[in-house]
Design a protein around this nucleic acid. Structure first.
Length: 873
RNA sequence: GGGAGCAUAGCUCAGCCGGUUAGAGCACUUGCCUUACAAGCAAGGGGUCACAGGUUCGAGUCCUGUUGUUCCCACCA
């Protein structure tokens, strides 16, 4: 099958993907004869567009999975599509707003219909995009589970934890997003240093003329103050403890209490206590049995605040400040920069608020999850992320899991209107579990999306049923998230897996970095610096984008995205394409097999191929995908294309049929092997070329990954052959310096110093002619008597004479040789000094010492040859 | 306040257990349309590996400190 003159990924890639799909090549079922390799794929956010973070995730997963599968594993991909209710919901709300509607206008039923349609529309698009990227994930396994109330697995876990007392409902302070109108967990709040003000407010002590001054960044919360606190050891205020102050504007009498929480050195040393709107104050309030007064509703509008009721929190802030000022109760206003919590999805400033919510008690769950990482049952790659994980897990607070959203797993809890008992059940109950009343109502809240995501590694295999799939694939082998979701997802999968399954959800968490824009900024849609991967795929092809993602950065480190690198990888694809075209158009054979006799160049390339195979396999094993890909890039471009293909040309075009056939065989064999090696990284183009190779059948995706082959490894021969390539390079350099075009050929006289070199060069005549632009090559044991008219070139193995003297600038020539000679001499000196050092020779390993000795020998020979050349000038 | 990462060529980055003359891509210079490829070929310029100590026969690589920078975590109102 012939290859088109130009490779067009835009048309080729979808075709190839279809071929994989049509032939059902993605599905790898459990196989008792093969070790399982299962990889957990994060649920893509349904936001209508894939971003480069997903592209990176997806590529890493795909490379690993394809490689493992070719290496003989039963490899399975575990795709998730069950995520991000909130993202979708917010998007739909935005759409509605354009029509002047809110979700309340539509009602839950109708609203969910819209959300669902939107998800189908855009969720499907994301899967199409992932396919474009080459994802070998078997998307036919996709399961949408979150629309129908609550999935079985989620319900099972909820009930289990509830029965163990690890889930509780309580009126606690939580983070509230007034835009999404839902509670958020601690991890969903991003803290951002924000400039603000520090308002000093005077509270008059009752029945005195004395004032205490409190400082606050949120004056509007004063409406909910139920105490003022001072440090018990603060002499300034000791006399006031136990007295009361009159809360201005509200005229409520509140106590002055003493609590260690107050830092005497910060602010005024007096703190207003608002139990409903500050986590610390909440705790203080608990300790002192303070009244809780909620002064904001779900939209962050004032309630229970008298004349301020109905005002937005920021309007209220202005009004209150103004009113206090009018009363002369506003002290200084300082500029104050402080950390403000923002909703990680919409960026709105979150409001700490007390609210009845569901929590997971973390301490008992964290402990075994910590042990799992300490004991190495879960390994993080790179290792440093273990620490990130541990420090979070060790300090984790209870997890707020209820969300006031309409789409998600609805909490399986029913409250009785008669007795107030909460019934938690695996099946929908008809009556209260306590009093039997039928007047029960289901909790309208849904679960944090990460609650269900945490169950993914076992839920997808059919849990809570005991399935053979689950038995075979769990624990999964690896998960590959970015470090930004270690807390959200990785940690929660670990403690959920350990708790429910009694074992970790995956053996290795291979953590990658984030994709930044060219200026080093995190990509955000709002910042407009995001790049749609599809754009890159359309322009350069998925293979190029994948290589760009994989190479040029190391595990766990962020990478900046450069379009130029995509271009470079596109060029690489083009290179492979053209090299393959060359091989194919020169073939007269119809099967992949090596010839009986290999010549020097063959042995050289096969040795290089073997080394590359060994190293690349090793790198993949250690998750060093970037290094692996780079080695393949170098081998293919430098060794195979630039050297070996050129080296085969004389034989391919020669009259000698058997030599030509031998070259064809080695070319085809090497090409087939390198295509297999490269396939996990550039799946499309390798498949396309593979399908065109004579004697290759089926998909390259299920071929065996190359292994190191001792019988095709000739390190000594390869080393000898490098004498030839060195000589060729030296001649080319000489000619380039003299600006001699390749079209101007000349003869070469090569002086060899020993029998080995003689035979090496004798066998390499044709190579020298082709690559060193020689008309003919003669070997001799001594330099020509007269060096007149000759240009000389020296390597450590040979001296070469070229009759081009009429073009030589003798002075420049001398200067060049002197420079080279000096460099060689200084190297020799350094090396000799090293060898003279007894400490070195006695302590360094023999191998290392030998390398130095060899170096001396080589450099000495080179220096001698250079010296001779100099004399001849 | 605690923790982590990064600092190597003009730019973006590799460099795994310390051991040849520190690499790649892009950019730059010179010469080439050599019948696979100008998205290419050949040759070349460019780095006291942030700074200061230390360990070692030997340090870009390990240790300590300094500086700069990025990120994560944390209840200072």
């Amino acid at each position: 099958m012939e290859l088109d003159k130009v490779y067009d990924p835009r048309s080729a890639e979808p075709e190839i993907y279809k071929y994989w799909e049509d032939n059902n090549l993605f599905r790898a079922e459990a196989d008792p004869d093969k070790p399982p390799f299962s990889i957990v794929i994060p649920p893509p956010n349904v936001t209508g567009q894939l971003h480069l973070g997903h592209a990176l995730d997806n590529t890493v997963q795909d490379v690993l999975t394809r490689a493992k599968r070719m290496q003989g594993y039963a490899a399975v991909w575990v795709p998730g599509t069950d995520h991000a209710g909130i993202a979708t919901q917010i998007k739909v709300e935005e759409e509605l707003r354009k029509e002047g509607l809110t979700r309340y206008d539509l009602g839950r039923e109708k609203f969910l219909e819209r959300v669902w349609a939107w998800k189908d529309k855009y969720g499907g698009r994301i899967i199409e995009q992932l396919k474009l990227l080459g994802s070998s994930c078997d998307w036919s396994r996709e399961r949408f589970t979150m629309d129908d109330g609550c999935s079985r697995a989620v319900r099972e876990v909820f009930v289990r934890l509830y029965e163990k007392g690890l889930i509780y409902k309580g009126n606690r302070i939580i983070n509230w997003c007034p835009h999404c109108t839902t509670a958020l967990s601690d991890t969903e709040v991003e803290h951002e240093e924000t400039p603000g003000h520090f308002w000093h407010i005077k509270y008059r002590v009752k029945d005195t003329d004395e004032y205490v001054v409190v400082a606050t960044t949120r004056p509007e919360t004063m409406l909910g103050d139920t105490a003022v606190a001072v440090n018990p050891n603060d002499p300034r205020y000791a006399h006031l403890v136990g007295k009361t102050v009159i809360l201005p504007l509200v005229n409520r009498e509140i106590p002055i209490i003493a609590d260690d929480y107050v830092d005497t050195d910060f602010g005024t040393g007096c703190v207003k206590i608002t139990p409903c709107h500050d986590p610390n104050d909440f705790e203080v309030g608990q300790r002192h049995n303070l009244e809780q007064i909620l002064v904001m509703d779900n939209d962050a509008r004032i309630i229970n605040g008298g004349v301020y009721d109905g005002l937005d929190r920021y309007d209220a802030r202005k009004r209150i400040a103004a009113d206090l000022d009018a009363l002369g109760l506003l002290g200084k206003i300082e500029e104050h920069s402080h950390n403000v919590g923002k909703c990680y999805r919409c960026g709105t400033t979150v409001e700490p608020i007390t609210s009845p919510q569901w929590f997971v008690k973390m301490a008992p769950l964290a402990e075994p999850a910590i042990d799992a990482a300490r004991g190495g049952r879960v390994k993080f790659v790179p290792e440093r992320f273990t620490k990130t994980y541990l420090s979070w897990m060790e300090n984790v607070r209870d997890w707020c899991i209820s969300r006031q959203l309409w789409w998600g797993h609805q909490i399986p809890a029913w409250t009785c209107a008669d007795c107030g008992h909460i019934t938690v059940s695996r099946t929908d109950p008809d009556a209260c579990g306590h009093c039997g009343s039928a007047k029960i109502e289901r909790d309208p809240d849904v679960l944090d999306t990460w609650f269900s995501s945490a169950l993914w590694p076992f839920e997808v295999f059919g849990w809570p049923d005991k399935t053979s799939e689950l038995d075979y694939w769990y624990p999964t082998t690896v998960v590959t998230p970015g470090y930004d979701i270690i807390f959200f997802w990785v940690a929660r999968m670990i403690f959920s897996g350990v708790e429910q399954m009694g074992d970790v959800p995956f053996r290795t968490a291979y953590i990658h970095g984030l994709v930044l824009d060219a200026n080093g900024k995190k990509m955000h849609k709002s910042a407009g610096n995001g790049i749609d991967p599809q754009e890159m795929i359309d322009k350069y092809g998925a293979d190029a984008l994948r290589m760009n993602m994989i190479t040029g950065n190391s595990p766990g480190n962020d990478m900046r995205f450069y379009t130029e690198r995509c271009e470079a990888m596109r060029n690489f694809a083009n290179k492979i394409w053209n090299a393959s075209r060359f091989v194919l158009m020169n073939l007269k054979i119809s099967e992949i097999s090596l010839p009986d006799t290999l010549d020097a160049a063959d042995r050289w390339i096969l040795t290089k191929l073997n080394e590359t195979t060994r190293e690349v396999t090793d790198n993949i094993e250690r998750f060093e995908l970037g290094v692996a890909a780079t080695k393949l890039y170098d081998f293919i471009w430098d060794d195979f294309c630039d050297w070996y293909i050129e080296l085969t040309k004389p034989r391919l075009y020669s009259e000698d049929e058997s030599a030509a056939t031998a070259a064809q065989r080695v070319l085809l064999y090497t090409l087939a092997e390198l295509l297999k090696l490269l396939h996990p990284f550039m799946p499309f183009i390798t498949e396309r070329i593979w399908q065109s190779l004579p004697g290759a059948s089926g998909s390259i995706m299920v071929r065996k990954y190359p292994e190191f082959d001792e019988s095709l490894y000739f390190p000594d021969d390869a080393a000898s052959f490098s004498q030839v390539t060195d000589a060729i390079r030296a001649v080319r350099a000489r000619r380039a310096e003299m600006n001699i075009p390749p079209s101007k050929r000349s003869s070469l006289a090569i002086v060899v110093s020993d029998a080995r070199s003689e035979s090496v060069f004798a066998a390499a005549r044709e190579y020298l002619k082709k690559l060193a632009y020689a008309t003919d090559v003669t070997l001799q044991s001594a330099a020509p008597d007269s060096l007149g008219g000759l240009v000389s070139v020296a390597t450590d193995a040979v001296r070469i004479f070229i009759p081009l003297a009429e073009l030589v600038d003798v002075d420049a020539e001398r200067a060049r040789i002197v420079k080279e000679l000096e460099k060689a001499k200084s190297e020799i000196e350094k090396t000799e000094a090293k060898l003279r050092n007894a400490e070195f020779t006695s302590r360094a390993p023999e191998q290392v010492v030998q390398v130095e000795r060899d170096k001396i020998a080589r450099l000495t020979a080179l220096a001698a040859n250079l010296g001779e050349s100099l004399k001849g000038l």
